[in-house]
Every structure is written in C-alpha cells, then in structure tokens.
C-alpha cells in the first residue's frame, strides 16, 4: 500500500474510534467520568463511546477486575469485535490482578485472555490518564501498516 494512502487511512482511523466500554468495577466510574462528564470529555479526541454492542466497535476499554467466572465472557466479546480492533487495559486489576493479586477468583491481568495494546496503570487511573492512554493508542494507529495486518494466516470463522 503506498505510504500516503496508508497515512491517510490511519489518520482517519485514529480520529474516529468507536469505543466499547467494558466497565466492570471502580475503574468503570473513572472511565464514565472520562467519557461522559463534560470535564474530561473524550469526544474531543474523536472517540465516540456509544456503541452498546461489540459488533460495531473498534476499541474495547477493559476497566476493572476480571474474575475467572467472567473470563469466558470477555473472550467471547473480544472475538465478536470485527478487525481491526484494539484493547486498552485500564487500571491495575486489568493489568496484572492489582490489589487482588493473591485472590482465588481473580484473573491476574486481562492479557492472559486477550491481547492488549495499551496498559493504563492506576488504581483507579485518573480520567486524564485514560485520555493519555487513548492518545498513545492513536499514535500507535498512526504508525501502523494496514497491509501487514492482513498478511499472514487467513481468518477462519467457525
């Protein structure tokens, strides 16, 4: 793909992310503050937080503790998202288990189940930190090579 086309595609993709909110615990409130409150407005970055279904989303923000009981549901929802998709893991519970690192029912980090692009540390991270994570993700998208994503093994459904 010629470079200018790639750059244009990436530019349009990074400023029109549709974010699916997988808000689980306390971080969900900070994510809500980042997405819905007029103070830490995320729509100025082009991220629209409205899709209620994963089928129309580009980005999923996993905010909160993932338990072993919930892990199959997380995987299922991730697989329902169409490519290209990105994952932001928000908060220390989703990054590595967090304050519940020794619990018998907590998955120690959501990256054990799905691949993560950006980790936002904090307990809970301030809404500004989440915005910085989204900005980092936008930089990553800007530097992406779309054709390389499609090369490789064919995607088998079923």
């Amino acid at each position: 793909m010629p470079k200018s086309v790639s750059k244009l595609l990436n530019l349009s993709r990074k400023y029109s992310i549709w974010a699916y909110q997988w808000g689980l615990a306390c971080c969900a409130i900070e994510m809500g503050a980042a997405f819905a409150s007029p103070r830490y407005d995320v729509m100025r970055l082009g991220v629209i937080p409205f899709p209620a279904t994963p089928r129309q989303a580009d980005l999923v923000v996993i905010a909160g503790t993932v338990t072993d009981k919930l892990a199959p549901a997380v995987l299922r929802l991730y697989e329902q998202m169409p490519d290209p998709k990105y994952v932001i893991s928000m908060g220390s519970c989703a990054n590595c288990g967090g304050p519940y690192w020794d619990s018998y029912s907590v998955t120690k980090g959501v990256d054990q189940i799905i691949p993560v692009d950006v980790y936002v540390p904090g307990c809970p991270p301030r809404p500004e930190a989440l915005l910085e994570g989204i900005v980092l993700l936008q930089e990553r998208i800007a530097n992406e090579d779309m054709s390389a994503r499609w090369k490789g093994d064919p995607i088998v459904v079923g």
Binding site: G97, W101, D102, S103, Y104, S105, K108
Partner: peptide
Amino acid sequence: HPLRKDFPLLSR
C-alpha cells in the same frame, strides 16, 4: 471451599 483455613492462596 475457599474460606476454610486449610485452603491455600496459591499466589502467595
């Protein structure tokens, strides 16, 4: 049965 005292927390 997790809350029994002889149930270990494996991470620890």
